[in-house]
Structure formats: structure tokens, C-alpha cells
Design a protein around this nucleic acid. Structure first.
Lengths: 162, 162
DNA sequence: ATGTGCATGTAACTGGTTACATGATTCG
DNA sequence: CGAATCATGTAACCAGTTACATGCACAT
């Protein structure tokens, strides 16, 4: 993908991620290139900025796998979980299963914590009732989703990841 | 609340917000105090850090209302929406209704965009299928929640906000 | 005519995190 | 006896946003 493509892609998930800007994407791509983790194919078109398509090198793919392994404990936040999901397609099914199960546990805890908050007043007089209620709804939805995916993945043992 | 309390509160929602640290909270509180938007009650206890309880002043409450009014267009991200919900309890019911309806529209759009992505490959070979699927689940859950709250709010016209 | 989409990039700023310093108390 | 909780605060650093520069093509 090109920097522009990446940005467009992220923007569609921007609702969950909090959109990212060119200011990060391009410098990052340059850095990755210098480190030899990506290769570039430049398609110059007269009089307009050349289209640069980046592809993972073998070293890059290695680093990616390493990252997937290290991030066994994905940051608890929804944002980082989405980031993980974006990059996780392609990791082995076992690893994916383990991560999703772990996530399930974390979110369960979070939901329990929110449930304990229900009566307790937060900021204002009846502070943050809405926020807590919303949190509960999202947590439940995520747990249901995890159950669904976990079930599907563990049921069909097709050679999903490499 | 004290800085410590605020942090604890945020941490419980940290899953949705991406936790905040003392490094921001204390300086912000000091700044608010200098601007006369909050008052402090210091409860000194011998030999341990004094407990400082902050309360909104009248000016502070004014600024808060102003913020609620200005943020008619809450940033589209889930994070900022949660932030809004935390602070929105106390705004007038009409304003709240308007904001939630607007949010409903935004999320509908986002979901539609995700639905259009389903077939399209993203990053990897079958890139980000999981992320998109997850996004759809969360979007649907939020829309259902919004419907529920919107319905409840518009039905019972009790003198909710001031 | 004016704006939006394509497509790259840099520089300044600013917001937030991380890491530190301090110290009593309670729980395992 | 060590770890966690309570409770405040500062300073350095870094990640990411905002704003700029450039310019064609296509639609309204």
C-alpha cells in the first residue's frame, strides 16, 4: 500500500482508532524503509507526485511476526485491540485464539468493574451514569463478538494462519 | 474530587479512554485553579501528602456549560464520545437529545462505510477482516444503545437537566 | 469558479507519557 | 518483609497533530 492508501484505510476505522495523519505515516514509512523492513516501488507519473507502493520485505515480515508474538498482552484499551486485530490476520490460529481468550477475560473484568460502579456517583451529582451504561453496552457487545469468533475459530480447524 | 480520585475514576473507563496519568491531571488542575475555574479545599494530614479536593466555581460551571454547547459536534471517535458522556450528565435534556441523535447519524454512516469494506481487502491478503467485523459489531451495539437511551429520554419528559 | 480527491512531503508545536521523588499504612 | 494503596508533585522526552507547500483532474 501507499501512504495515502494506509491513511484512507485507517480513516474508515478512524471512528474506533482516532484518525491518523500524514504527519506520522510518511516519516514512519521512510524509517521502515531505512531499516530495510519495507521495499518501495515508485511509479512516477509526469507532473504529479509519484505513487510509492510499499511492500514488506522478508526482514519486515519477520519483525511483524515478532511483534505479534510480543504483543501477547495487548494493551487493554479498545483502540489498541482494534490495532491488534488489523495486524493479527495472518498470525497462527493458536496464537490468535490465545489472544482472544485473554482479551475476553480482560473485558469481563472491565465489565465487572463497571457494574460495581453503577450506583456509585462519579463526577457530577449523578455523574457519568450515561458513560457507565454505555460502557456496559459496549463491553457486552464485545464479549458476544468474542464468543462468536472464538467459537467459529475453534470449531473449524482449517489451516487458517500459516 | 481530588486528582487521585479523578485518576481512579478515569482508570475504570480506561478501557474505553486509554488511561490518563498524573502527569496531565495535576498540572491541569493547577491551571484550572489559576484561572479561577475550580476552588480547592486542602485537608492536611500530618506527615502524608495533603488531600486536595477540587470543586467547580461558578465561573467553572459557566465554562463547563459553554463547553457542552460548543461541543455540539463531538469528535467522531469513540473515545471523545465517552468523554462527552462523562461530562454531559447535567446538560439540558434537549441538548443531550440533539447530540445523541447527531451521534446516531454519524455512527450509522460509519457502519455503512464498514459494510462497504467487507469484501474489499485491506492490509494483508484477506486484510483486516477481523477488525472490520469487530467494528460492525461495536457500531451495531452503539446504535442499539442510542435507540434505547433516545427512546427513554424522549418518552419521559421529567425535568432531567437544569 | 470552487471544492474535493489524488498524492507526496516537512516543520513547529503541543499534548501526554514515562520516570522520578517522597513517605505512611495496610495486606498477604 | 515486600507489594500495593494512598497521595502529591515535577521534568524530560517523544509521539502525534496541525499547518504549510505543491499541483493536476474531475465534478458541481
Amino acid at each position: 500500500m501507499s501512504g495515502y492508501d494506509i491513511r484512507r484505510y485507517m480513516q474508515k476505522l478512524g471512528w474506533l482508532l482516532g484518525s491518523s495523519s500524514f504527519g506520522v505515516i510518511y516519516p514512519t514509512l521512510h524509517a521502515l524503509h531505512e531499516d530495510g523492513l519495507v521495499s518501495v516501488q515508485v511509479l512516477s507519473r509526469p507532473d504529479r507526485p509519484p505513487r510509492k507502493t510499499y511492500t514488506l520485505t522478508q526482514a519486515g515480515r519477520g519483525a511483524w511476526r515478532e511483534w505479534l508474538d510480543r504483543s501477547a498482552t495487548p494493551g487493554a484499551s479498545l483502540k489498541s485491540f482494534v490495532m491488534y486485530l488489523v495486524l493479527a490476520d495472518g498470525s497462527s490460529r493458536d496464537r490468535l485464539l490465545a489472544c482472544l481468550r485473554q482479551r475476553h477475560e480482560q473485558v469481563s473484568d472491565q465489565r465487572a468493574a463497571l457494574e460495581r460502579m453503577v450506583g456509585t456517583s462519579g463526577l457530577g451529582a449523578d455523574g457519568g451514569t450515561l458513560a457507565v451504561d454505555y460502557g456496559l453496552a459496549v463491553a457486552s457487545a464485545e464479549l458476544a463478538w468474542l464468543d462468536k469468533v472464538l467459537d467459529r475459530l475453534s470449531r473449524e480447524p482449517l489451516p487458517g494462519g500459516e
